[in-house]
Design a protein around this nucleic acid. Structure first.
Lengths: 195, 195
DNA sequence: AACAATTACTTACAATTGTTAGGCAAGTCG
DNA sequence: CGACTTGCCTAACAATTGTAAGTAATTGTT
């Protein structure tokens, strides 16, 4: 269980991530995965304990990255609107670092079995609530409107962020940090031209 | 294949929709579905031709509803920002009419086999492009900013709309038309208080 | 040269999958 | 009454699923 092993194991996990994204966790078979790596299905079990272990590590590794990013943002001595902006940018950048794992994280986590699913959802709720706090802070300080339902605001925010891996093409003309900036601008300031 | 049949067939489809949403299309077995209806799996085939037929009708029926809604909006003699607002509200209302089917439409359409998948994606691209045209019209007329990438704007819009079935609780204090209004406001005007 | 780890193989198994075939009972309609 | 339809049944199918057990080949290290 050293570096060499990790390396091959990581190869397996990355190939699995691509497969899970393409076909979905359930529809992706271990034989599909093995074929992608040029080995037999049973050989996969020299590297991983189970199919679910792969999903587990994909989901929880991403979750840890998101958390780390938000930790930093919360420390900023800045108004809520700026914190929110930075939170959005950070979230996008974490995703952009691994779009495939992000897509799996988003769409396939529900196939985790208990108790992992429960743990995952707790992490997720916690993350969302921290964003919600930023929004609430912004409403209190007069930075944000108080006319918008807060749950709706957070959920709309997350919807926008989380779907990014589905349509963003990293080879396009807009790079990931610019993407974060523009997304933050659109969500905070809206589409309409400043009056 | 008459009214009485349709009625039972619809029961099957509705139960399937709930199951597909809960477990995902692939993970939901015909035996699961049968059990939900209190019958044997093989009996389902008195009402439907195949598992995929169910998914097909769920996806394409929803697609037709969306199209109808947008047809009406495009006819409006109104500025782009108002058309966009109405388009959003319409989209939300179509979803709200059947949250379960909407969730399936969103998350499970990819499990359609060819050529249905291709057809579905064409419908979807077409729908998205019609929204994109409204946004472009708004940029030209000076209604919307020209600083935001148009693809990003449309995709953000759709992300927000399409995730609604995942978190919206119809029993909550905010009803569906209010939800549409607020969503439109947030996306068009942003979170920030008017300056 | 012997050892331990890594990586892969073959074979196999029990479970689950969607679906077909054929038949039986109850209600509807002439 | 008798024909027909609707809804469900049992039994069975071939295919695919994740995974276990045991073994061999290759590797770098002692």
């Amino acid at each position: 269980m050293d570096v060499a092993n990790l390396s091959r194991k990581e190869q397996v996990i990355r190939a699995a991530a691509a497969l899970f994204r393409e076909k979905g966790y359930v529809a992706a078979s271990m034989r599909d995965l093995a074929q992608k790596l040029g080995i037999e299905a049973a050989s996969l079990y020299s590297h991983i304990k189970s199919k679910e272990e792969i999903l587990h590590s994909l989901c929880f590794d991403m979750a840890a990255e998101f958390r780390k990013s938000l930790d930093a943002v919360e420390q900023l001595p800045a108004p809520a609107s700026e914190k929110l902006r930075q939170g959005i940018i950070g979230h996008i950048e974490v995703m952009a670092k691994d779009l495939i794992a992000s897509a799996v994280f988003m769409n396939e986590h529900r196939h985790l079995s208990q108790p992992y699913l429960r743990d995952f959802l707790l992490l997720r709720i916690n993350y969302i609530n921290r964003f919600k706090s930023i929004i609430e802070e912004g409403v209190r300080s007069g930075d944000f409107k108080d006319t918008i339902d807060k749950k709706l605001a957070v959920m709309t925010l997350f919807s926008s962020l989380n779907w990014m891996p589905q349509w963003y093409d990293p080879g396009s003309d807009i790079n990931s940090s610019e993407l974060g900036e523009q997304l933050a601008d659109m969500l905070v300031n809206g589409l309409k031209k400043g009056r």
